[in-house]
Design a protein around this nucleic acid. Structure first.
Length: 470
RNA sequence: GUCCCUAUCGUCUAGAGGCCUAGGACAAUACCCUUUCACGGUAUGAACCGGGGUUCGAAUCCCCGUGGGGACGCCA
């Protein structure tokens, strides 16, 4: 059987409006759209919905692009900017006006406000009453002089609009619930619901994957598509992501940029994995790479209900990815972070070796940078720490150890033996020398295996640091 | 108010009428490992919102409540 591949090619899009950074909810929507296109060998399109001139900014566009790049969600086409497609929208509006599927409305905004107030007072759903809608046999009011009209879509009066939502199942709306929405403002600029329809049509979008706050827009968009004689794409509405506290995420409450996760020490692999698992599942699978996710991803098995963000689980994944990351990769991440602190990692022990020591002991990259830092800067234990750990007995032990360290072969087994011999000679236990040694070298009583620390730090640095206290 | 969506452990979820004594993961607790702190391992507690149906049988299907969310803009 021969299939028309071109006709079946999946085309998805991510269409953020540049009024702020890319937050976690938008990132998941982008991830799912991207993954769906990748899964089916399709095309992923980035479209910037910047028709709200008052609130859109170039900085926000850049922030979104940065977020996408950090997550590794590369688009195949675009970014397209709606502001650059004005001519096309205006042409379609003119076409609809000519065809009678849209009409001019001269109702002033204040009049609309009154109308809505009255309707609410009566317990009705606020909506435009169709006073300028042309009907056979109906006499329209005389257009007021000097008033620029808006253009409204002539929505069907009865019947239902329905679609099989790919995540929520069949959804139906009675046309009677829908009013005639404005598709072009008085100044001639088109509005959101209209631009989306024209763009999705022009760009050949086959699957609209977006946030579930758009469910109510869908029937209107479908009606416009019908009026235009355009094909109706498949819709998949993703439920929202709630904050860690179960509250809705908003700019004022909890919403942060995905790039903030970078600054906070998260690996993009961990964020992708976490987001992929939030609201989607593949049986009991918890840990999967970006590639594995793409291979498994589908629109079925997406949860229709809202999900609460859980930082603990993200941390767990981040820890996992750090533990399993290549040392060179980790070293470059840590170097970048230490550079933020103006710490030079070029001199001193090989960063990769230090990172190896700590990678399975931390949950994020900043913490890794914290633990690695003492290897590259002169650190001094606090007076309290010294008082507690560098007692007279401890100094005696360290002095004894120092003479062995001065000549021992600088390899873990020999270093370990030197410590054990010192303990045996003095009749003390391991911790009695290992802990003061940690404090002297790193300024803190915990560290990985002390022999490993010695080996990586190097003889010169170890002896120099010890001598400060002996 | 009206319309739309939604409901399994604290959290993310598995579950497509019998496989469910409801599984996994995070988190929690306990123990083990250990030169410290972690890591790791083992174990334990923890859920089908309520009420009606349908059916021999319901976490799964239907209806009604209730809770939660979204929308009702010349915002997107």
């Amino acid at each position: 059987m021969i299939l028309f591949k071109a006709a079946m090619t999946v085309r998805t899009r991510f269409a953020p409006s540049p009024t702020g950074f890319l937050h976690i909810g938008g990132a998941r929507t982008a991830l799912f759209s991207w993954a769906y296109a990748r899964r089916h060998g399709g095309t992923f399109i980035l479209r910037v919905e910047d028709t709200d001139v008052a609130r859109s900014t170039p900085e926000a566009v850049q922030a979104i692009l940065d977020g996408m790049r950090w997550l590794g969600l590369e688009h195949d086409e675009g970014p397209f900017y709606q502001m650059q497609r004005m001519e096309r929208y205006k042409a379609v509006v003119a076409q609809m006006l000519a065809a009678g599927s849209a009409y001019h409305c001269y109702t002033a905004p204040e009049e609309l406000d009154h109308l809505r107030e009255d309707q609410r007072a009566r317990g009705e759903k606020p909506r435009y009453d169709g006073r300028w809608r042309p009907e056979p046999g109906k006499t329209l009011p005389e257009p007021p002089a000097g008033v620029a009209p808006v253009v409204r879509f002539r929505n069907p009066l009865d019947g239902v609009v329905a679609w099989d939502d790919q995540v929520k199942g069949r959804i139906e709306f009675a046309n009677a619930e829908l009013d005639d929405l404005i598709i072009a403002r008085a100044d001639g600029t088109p509005t959101y619901n209209f631009c989306v329809v024209v763009d999705d049509w022009d760009m050949g979008i086959t699957h609209v994957i977006r946030g579930d706050d758009h469910v109510n827009n869908t029937p209107r968009q479908i009606n416009i598509l019908h009026a235009l004689g355009a094909p109706v794409p498949l819709y998949a509405h993703l439920s929202m992501i709630l904050g860690d506290d179960g509250q809705k995420l908003s700019k004022r409450h909890g919403a942060v940029s995905v790039t903030q996760y970078d600054e906070d020490g998260y690996l993009p692999e961990a964020v992708i994995n976490y987001l992929g698992r939030l609201g989607w599942s593949h049986g009991d699978e918890e840990i999967f790479s970006r590639e594995q996710f793409v291979e498994w991803f589908g629109l079925d098995h997406i949860t229709p209900s809202a999900a609460q963000f859980n930082t603990e689980k993200l941390n767990w994944l981040n820890q996992h990815y750090i533990k399993h990351a290549a040392d060179a990769y980790l070293a470059s991440e840590v170097a970048r972070r230490l550079a933020w602190r103006r710490i030079d990692t070029e001199s001193g022990p090989a960063l990769e070796r230090v990172v190896t020591l700590y990678k399975d002991r931390v949950v994020n990259l900043n913490e890794l940078a914290d633990t690695v830092e003492p290897f590259f800067v002169e650190i001094h234990a606090s007076a309290e720490m010294l008082g507690t750990h560098l007692t007279a007995d401890a100094r005696t032990a360290l002095t004894a150890l120092r003479s062995r360290l001065a000549e021992v072969e600088w390899q873990k087994p020999a270093l370990s033996a030197a410590i054990k011999e010192t303990c045996a000679a003095l009749g003390i236990k391991m911790p009695q020398v290992a802990i003061p040694l940690r404090v002297a070298l790193l300024g803190q009583p915990q560290s990985p295996s002390i022999d490993a620390v010695l080996e990586v730090m190097g003889r010169t640095a170890v002896l120099a640091r010890l001598d400060r206290y002996l």
